[in-house]
Design a protein around this nucleic acid. Structure first.
Lengths: 208, 208
DNA sequence: AAGCTTACCGACAAGTTGTCGGTAAGCTTT
DNA sequence: AAAGCTTACCGACAACTTGTCGGTAAGCTT
């Protein structure tokens, strides 16, 4: 009466439960025992599919970031929208909690998840920087931007948005708006865009 | 023949060894057993001074960041130097490895030290942002800068310099210079400073 | 010298990760 | 259909972790 599944099926099952547990208790506090108990498999089964606990984390990070980057890429490639909309859309696509569930993104910033957070950030940055910098170059040609260092500009914008928008828990609505406006202003300056040119693009995206 | 020391002495001894070990093996891989063996104390002694392994980490982070922030503060407060020198000096003071030893800063970015890294970053940012933003306000008055959001500008500059200058391991000399120039350019734009006004200030600091 | 505070000790409980020989399910292959 | 092979699965086990706790001893007061 032993239940057998394909390797892919079982791996995804493990990742699903790992995602839940890391969100609930954090990577450090969630044990491999927690995972196997919740699924109802034996210890050996888990280690048959993944070589270590960290390997589970890596696979999970891969799965989580793949979607976000794909979404970002889709927005960037869609030339039917104006350039500025594509820029803001690509960035926003990263921050908004994907379908998987918001509780993950809420707990991700807790100290127990420092590793998860760092790995996700690394992947997101390296995956999206090329997209954004290409967009910046495009803007340079149309005259919308005037950036001397598109790669580094993209890097700076993405790193900041990833870190700074982590800790927006204890902020009032007013502070939040202020922080958002500051961000827009600084992005405009970094890109050499006209002042106020980005704000409407963000509205376009959010109301879409 | 039991060796007794004051609590402060012993605590510092523990932190010294912890710093070594975290640098050698990373926070996760260095066990409390490693610490007590290297010092030659018993398990109970360690837990008499620190309530948990994470408490050791916190104390260590405190001790490490205290110096860096103090250095930064000293530079900012020294009004005998020009404003721009104080700005660049305060930022550079954070990145340069302090006397403690460079091996710590080399290993700090490894995955096993994600927690340490995150906690240090948080403390550094929250400690130095007020200093820098005050400096920016000062520059606004003298006309050197034109920043609408001094706090967020300081935050953005500090976060980027902390993250981006982590991974400069596999870069050529040329790439490094390019990245440095890009950073200067973007800081100037964020602050609304005149183009090229920051570069000489950085030279001043580095050659001091 | 008695007493109190506190640094120190080490055995122990409870839990963690990763290993390994063995079992059984579902394939080919003949 | 039987034999054989691959591979998903099992669970006991070793080796280690962190944190606890009753007890010891050093250095203070009083």
């Amino acid at each position: 009466m032993r239940i057998v599944k394909t390797a892919e099926e079982r791996k995804n099952e493990i990742l699903d439960v790992a995602e839940q547990l890391f969100a609930e208790k954090g990577f450090d506090n969630a044990s491999t025992n927690d995972i196997i108990k919740r699924i109802g498999i034996a210890r050996g089964t888990l280690y048959h599919h993944f070589g270590s606990k960290e390997e589970i984390l890596d696979a999970l990070v891969e799965r989580m970031t793949r979607d976000a980057i794909a979404r970002s890429k889709a927005v960037v490639s869609d030339r039917s929208h104006p350039l500025l909309d594509r820029l803001t859309g690509a960035i926003i696509a990263l921050d908004i909690n994907d379908g998987a569930g918001p509780e993950v993104f809420e707990q991700i910033h807790k100290p127990q998840n420092a590793l998860l957070h760092q790995k996700m950030q690394e992947r997101l940055i390296s995956g999206v920087v090329p997209l954004i910098s290409e967009l910046i170059r495009e803007g340079n040609e149309t005259g919308a931007f005037d950036s001397k260092y598109p790669d580094e500009a993209a890097e700076m914008i993405l790193i900041y948005s990833n870190i700074a928008f982590d800790a927006l828990a204890g902020l009032t609505e007013e502070e939040l708006v202020h922080k958002g406006q500051a961000f827009i202003c600084h992005v405009e300056r970094i890109l050499g865009a006209e002042e106020g040119s980005l704000a409407p693009a963000i509205m376009n995206i959010l109301n879409r």
